[in-house]
Design a binder for these strands. Structure first.
Lengths: 194, 194
DNA sequence: TCAATTTCTTAATCTAGGTTAAGTGTTTTT
DNA sequence: AAAAACACTTAACCTAGATTAAGAAATTGA
């Protein structure tokens, strides 16, 4: 298991000594997953955050009509978890699943608290990670309030160019908030317009 | 100016000595605002966060057709700022305005950084504040992806009971993501159904 | 390798919510 | 206290996107 990506992720916001690096990595669990494996199911209490070393996961909910809504994609170098459940310690309604064979580094809430205690720099690290995540969600909510489906799709293509050919279209539809049929129609219109 | 509310807000997540309290408060600026005063305009670089002591503010964007979209209401005891602009130091597209006469305690980004340095507990404090804000935005995005306008309105009424009779209906419409005309129609239908 | 499953497309029809417009309160300003 | 500005309602008509359904293409897997 290669944790280089994780160490580089830390070093974007904080500087760790060799000792701190070793201690920190010792708190993570490495896990190899197959495509469509489940990491968290709605109704569960989320007890860990995942850092994606390789592959891609998705966080999604299932509404009362059985439709899925993708709240986040987590490709390589991203963090994913159910923040609501993680901090409230109550059952959440997020599902987390791999979209292809993936490798993750798992940090349990318990170990995260130890980490905050022993290497307080991580208070800052996760504050910054969460700030960026907050900005992304605010931006996305604003997009959903102000843009057409067409524009949201174009924006998605710009934001996640690497994902477009890697994941099923219906997942992109569930992310931008339209049915797969409508996204298909949009793409056909777009192709013709050229 | 009475900062009791602010001190109580801190004490929800961290414990400060008398000295730390004094120092911390010295970093804030008190400001009294009239209804519809502007605290931040789109295109500006946001240089401060506001804690609402009294009254209510709103953060909103204006789209390319001139329509307003409310990203957040900040009643008494809430924080508001343009996180994107604040951390990137680039011009943001958020407007922040009072909805009634209000009092705020302002913390400049510069003073916030001093605070992180001199009272590191605040790394934790703001991490927790931001975590909660993130959870709220994720939840709201999910609501926009999965609920009808009717259900979003009902949920709004449950979440912000104190605001319903305090702020104009068109602001609620701009928050849940419908036109004022459609919200009016929803309310009429609801009233009849009883 | 070929059957089964999943994904994607196309097309007809439907509907939640938008648009336009006109009229009626209700605040705010002078 | 009148005028102006703003907020809310109602109603007719419109459209972006949903639904249903059926077939084609691609993937998965025994």
């Amino acid at each position: 298991m290669d944790y280089t990506l994780l160490l580089n992720n830390f070093s974007k916001h904080i500087t760790l000594t060799k000792k701190e690096q070793e201690f920190t990595l010792s708190l993570f669990d490495y896990k190899k997953l197959h495509s469509k494996d489940t990491l968290l199911e709605q109704g569960d209490i989320c007890k860990q955050s995942a850092f994606v070393l390789n592959g891609c996961l998705r966080g999604f909910t299932i509404d009362s009509n059985g439709f899925e809504h993708v709240l986040s994609f987590a490709p390589k170098d991203w963090w994913i978890g159910d923040m609501y459940s993680l901090i409230s310690k109550k059952p959440g309604n997020l599902n987390i699943e791999t979209m292809m064979d993936s490798e993750v580094a798992l940090l349990s809430k318990k170990n995260q608290d130890i980490l905050y205690d022993r290497v307080p720099k991580f208070e800052r690290f996760f504050r910054i990670i969460i700030e960026k995540s907050l900005v992304a969600f605010q931006q996305r909510l604003n997009d959903n309030l102000s843009l057409t489906a067409q524009d949201r799709y174009l924006k998605f293509c710009k934001t996640y160019p690497q994902l477009i050919n890697e994941i099923p279209q219906k997942q992109i539809a569930a992310y931008i908030g339209v049915t797969p049929e409508f996204l298909s129609k949009l793409r056909a219109k777009q192709a013709k317009a050229k």
